[in-house]
C-alpha cells in the first residue's frame, strides 16, 4: 500500500528542479507533471534515491488529448512498496520525448507500442519500430483524429 506522500515528493523535487515539476489532480488521481527536458534527470532521481527507489516501471501509456499528448508513467517501488504516477506532456506539433529505456529497460516494447499506435517519437530508443501494426502502415490508429471507416492505412 502506498505510504508515500506525493506532496513531499513534489516539494523535494521542486527544490531541485523548480517549476519543471507540478502537481495535477487530487486524491488517488494525484500525479506529477514533469517538463520533457527535465524528465530523464527526475526519473534518475526517482529510481536511485533511497527514499523513492522506484525500480519498476509498471505501466507506460499515452493519451491523445487533441491539443497535446500526455505520456503516463506508473512507477512502483518493490523494496518500499509505494507507487506514483508521473505525466509528461508534449505538443502535437513536436511529438518527441526522451526514451526511458536506459533507466527502465522494460519500457522497450511499451514505447514501441506508443510509437506505433499514437505516433510519439522516443529519442534514444534502441529499436523504434512498429510492433502491432504492419510495417507499411502509415497512420496511428489510437489518435483521436484517426478515421477508421474504410481506412486501410495504405498510401494512396
Amino acid at each position: 500500500m502506498s505510504n508515500l506522500d506525493i506532496n513531499e515528493v513534489l516539494l523535494a523535487l521542486q527544490a531541485a528542479y523548480g517549476e519543471a515539476i507540478q502537481l495535477i489532480g487530487e486524491g488517488s488521481q494525484a500525479a506529477l507533471l514533469i517538463a520533457p527536458d527535465q524528465m530523464l534527470d527526475v526519473f534518475g532521481v526517482l529510481k536511485t534515491n533511497e527514499f523513492y527507489q522506484f525500480n519498476m516501471l509498471r505501466n507506460l501509456t499515452a493519451v491523445d488529448y487533441l491539443e497535446y499528448m500526455e505520456i503516463v508513467y506508473h512507477l512502483y517501488s518493490l523494496p518500499l512498496r509505494h507507487s506514483i504516477t508521473i505525466k509528461v506532456r508534449c505538443t502535437m506539433e513536436e511529438l518527441t520525448i526522451p526514451s526511458v529505456t536506459k533507466i527502465w529497460p522494460s519500457a522497450n516494447f511499451q514505447e514501441r507500442e506508443i510509437y506505433d499506435l499514437l505516433g510519439v517519437n522516443f529519442t534514444g530508443h534502441p529499436d523504434l519500430r512498429r510492433i502491432l501494426m504492419p510495417e507499411e502502415f502509415t497512420e496511428h490508429p489510437l489518435r483521436k483524429t484517426y478515421n477508421f471507416v474504410g481506412n486501410t492505412g495504405e498510401k494512396r
Binding site: 501509456t61 493519451v63 522494460s106 516494447f109 489510437l142
Partner: peptide, 25 residues
C-alpha cells in the same frame, strides 16, 4: 487497466497493461 474518463458514458481512453506482451521482451 488504465482508464481515462471524460464524464460521458464511453471511456475516453482505455489502456491495458498486458503481462504476456511485456514478458515477451
Amino acid at each position: 487497466f488504465y482508464i481515462v474518463s471524460d464524464g460521458s458514458t464511453k471511456p475516453y481512453r482505455i489502456h491495458v497493461r498486458r503481462p504476456s506482451f511485456i514478458n515477451l521482451q
